[in-house]
Amino acid sequence: MSSSVEGRRPLLRVAGVSFSYLGRFAALDDVKLSIHEGESVALLGANGCGKSTLLKVLDGLVFPDAGTYRAFGEEITERSLEDDQLNRAFRGRVGFVFQNADAQVFSPTVREEVAFGPLNLGLDRGDAEERVHDVLELLDIAELADRAPYQLSGGQKKRVAIASVLVMNPEVILFDEPTAALDPRSTRWLVELLGELRRAGKTIVIATHDLERLPAMADRSVVIDEAHRVVRDGPTAEVLDDRELLEGANLADQA
């Protein structure tokens, strides 16, 4: 872990977490990880190593078979999230941008889509409308407000998906493969946005295997190998310099 986080408040803490799908297909094995306030952390690994599953654990969407997960000092379990107050507080503080924007953009119009989170978190309509307006302007998609999701391009859907999370003003934003399937201009826009969010003090966790843009997206990198275990946790520059590690985790090929 980077020494730059010393003294910062740990927000998310995963301890000895294991998870398997249907009790047979392992996705995470004894994973330990702490995310501190204001950090930008990349979860690196090959396809199927468990990055997306770890993000889902961090967002309280799947729950570990073994180990514990604490967010903002509270243990997050299926049962604890049944508490309406805790659920609302947790959902409002952690946002998740899914890899498949189609799954995240489900409302009839962009405006309704972006308003979904604030309304569900209890904001009144007036405040929600104001926030929606601001975030659509911020992401330069105000002209799409009344469009239906199926009328949007892939890049536009991604912007709407990000807007629908930013509008909740979460402290921690989880991104699953944010640059996947984006054209170069949208990718550059996204990387710049991540930079702005980092400067604004947001805590960012990104699951990716896009090593090319990694230094611009995260200060710290956590490498998960194909055995679903964390094999390295350190500054991005150091991780990227360790060729043997990257090849071992199937993140780079012998050139």
């Binding site: 959902r91 899914f98 189609d102 569900n120």
Partner: peptide
């Protein structure tokens, strides 16, 4: 698969079974 992802995306933004919209 899509239905599961959509449901997760809804839960992640605070959905608890009661849809709310901007319409008045």
């Amino acid at each position: 698969h899509l239905a599961t992802e959509v449901h997760e995306a809804m839960i992640a933004r605070g959905y608890t079974g009661e849809p709310r919209t901007l319409a008045r």
